[in-house]
Amino acid sequence: MNAVLLEARAIAKHFGGVKALTDVSLTIRQGEIYGLIGPNGAGKTTFFNVLTGLYHPDGGDLLFAGEKLEASAPHKVAKRGIARTFQNIRLFGNMTAMENVMVGRHARTHAGVLGAVMHDRRTTAEEAAIRRRAEELLHYVNIADRADDLARHLSYGDQRRLEIARALATDPKLLALDEPAAGMNGTETAGLRELIEGIRRDGITVLLIEHDVKLVMGLCDRVAVLDYGQKICEDVPAVVQKDPKVIEAYLGGSVA
């Protein structure tokens, strides 16, 4: 069994009276694809926001690669090796696809004002490396032909891919995807699935929020289910699918 990459311990987060997360504990192992599912409003995205430092948790803590993650410090979280995409795509719309991915290299590069102005050898080399890596990643997610287009002009599916490329540019150990298949058609979803499998083959652990049950069950090694901010189940897909609490949560959700 692989080493633990991320351990969430009793994470709590509430908004006024709404308990978005209550004592959520999960363990994600190195190299796995870990699914996080649950009905609408279950707290999945909130968990991502706490994990990536955008929200300050009201309780609990996160251990990443054996060390505590600092709360409320998104840029430090990125530097530690957690990258993410957003449920409602957040690209830099008026930058080109290429530039979007280049921004993703920020945390792994160093040039400051002086280097930028003087163009010393180190800065030019670094800039060339940023460009090369960005090109590679655009190829990797299969949108190299759109490199010079504004992000906002890409198709929906390509925007999702671009967001993944930008996240990968930060050299993450853990890639957290928030509903990457939302709004995609069958072929696009199949392509996405291949992409995610490839990412895992490259040694990156994936945390996946997804409503597409087929995708989750086919792709994930383990799945956790959230309902009303609580983890009600965590196991391999075959077991999760049969869990009465899970069925109840989903049926209850869809009936209501």
Partner: peptide, 21 residues
Amino acid sequence: SRIGRAWVAIREDEIAAKACG
């Protein structure tokens, strides 16, 4: 430069900029 891109990234979407490190 890296700095200039970071400025524009903040202008375009500050939250995504943070998530990019």
